[in-house]
Amino acid sequence: MSQVITDKHGIQHYMITINVNGDDYTRVVKANTLLVNVLRDELDLTGTKKGCELGDCGSCTILLENKPVDSCMILAIEADGKKITTIEGIAESSELDKVQEAFINNGAIQCGYCTPGMIISAKALLTRNPHPNEKEVREAIAGNLCRCTGFVNIVKAVLKVSEETNDKEVISNE
C-alpha cells in the first residue's frame, strides 16, 4: 500500500512509484487521479492521447504489465509498483519499432490521434501472436477508434509486420 499524506484540507494524497518505459518515477497523487493524467501532466508523456475519458475510444491505450489497457480507466494508485510502456517507450532503441515503421509505410496514419493507442494494441497482439489472421487483427484493435482511415491501411500494416517477422526472431525475442 502506498504511503498516505493528508493535506491541510484533510484530503489524502498517495505516494506512488511507477516504472514507465524502464524508469522509476515517484509522484504524489490523489485518490481520483487517473493514470492517463499522471502520464500526460506529470511526466509530459503526451503521446498517450485523451479522446473520451470513458474507455470508449482507446486513444489512451498503454501497456500495463505488458497488457494493453485504457489508461483513462485506471486510477494512478492502482498502477503503483507496476510496469508501464507508453508509445514513447515502445521502440527498444532510438530506431522505430517495426509496428511504427509499418504504420508509416502503409498509410496507416492520417491525423495521428488514434495512432499511439493503435500501435500499442497492435504491438500487444503481435507480441502474444506474431502471425495473426485478419480477423484477429481486427479484434485486437476493435477497442481503438479511428475516424480517418476506415482501418483499411491499419489492418494492412499490422499484417505486414506479421509477414515480415520470421519465426526465429520471435523465439529470440521471447
Binding site: R40, D44, L45, T46, G47, T48, K49, K50, T86, I87, E88, A91, L96, Q100, E101, F103, I104, N105, G107, I109, G112, Y113, T115, P116, I119
Partner: peptide
Amino acid sequence: KNVPKIDGREKATGAAKYAGDLK
C-alpha cells in the same frame, strides 16, 4: 509516388503535439 508521410515519424512516436498537449 508514395513518398513517406512528412509527419509520419512524429505521429508514430507520440512526439506530435496537438492543442491539448501544449503546456
